[in-house]
């Protein structure tokens, strides 16, 4: 990958990775760190990365960083989750976007990743499989499970309403 091609990847995908990280971490500063580290790692290997695989590489790095972040820094402590849950409940339950955001938070990390890659970035199952190191059928199962869970939460919320 040439310098100009790397810079092009920044222009095209920095926002997408930022949104992706933000959805996972729910913290702007943490998401910004993820973007910066993602591009830093990509730059270190840019000479060996093919341009056509640049975007996939970026998301692969981002997902690994997010996983590490969540796992090792233990960001989501039970206390924080409890507080977050309280906050979510007290916020408007009638706004679809908010309900979906809250529902997304209840998904396991891997399901969240695959559905975000699918809906936000428009990747197909094969591409998502490469990025997340899963088989195509596993990706499909996770996406189906995620949508069922989301639909169930939406239904519960609408019943409450």
């Amino acid at each position: 990958m040439k310098l100009s091609e790397y810079n092009n990847l920044v222009e095209l995908h920095a926002d997408g990775i930022y949104r992706f990280a933000l959805k996972h971490l729910k913290n702007e500063m943490d998401a910004q760190d993820i973007v910066q580290n993602t591009y830093l790692k990509t730059w270190e290997k840019h000479e060996t990365i093919e341009v056509s695989k640049g975007k996939s590489y970026l998301f692969t790095v981002a997902i690994n960083l997010i996983r590490n972040f969540v796992t090792y820094e233990k960001r989501f402590t039970s206390e924080e989750l409890a507080n977050q849950h309280t906050y979510n409940e007290s916020s408007s339950q009638f706004d679809l976007k908010e309900i979906l955001d809250n529902a997304l938070e209840q998904l396991p990390e891997i399901q969240k990743s695959v559905i975000l890659l699918r809906d936000y970035e428009g990747y197909n199952y094969e591409e998502i499989g490469k990025i997340t190191n899963l088989s195509e059928s596993q990706v499909k199962v996770y996406i189906f499970r995620a949508r069922k869970t989301l639909q169930g939460i939406l239904k519960d919320q609408s019943l409450v309403v």
Binding site: A14, D15, I17, Y18, L100, D119, Q151
Partner: peptide, 17 residues
């Protein structure tokens, strides 16, 4: 309800740096 599970990215969120 299933149709609403399709997520849409908020394009107004951009990486500031």
């Amino acid at each position: 309800l299933y149709s609403k599970t399709k997520l849409h990215a908020d394009q107004s969120i951009i990486y500031p740096f």
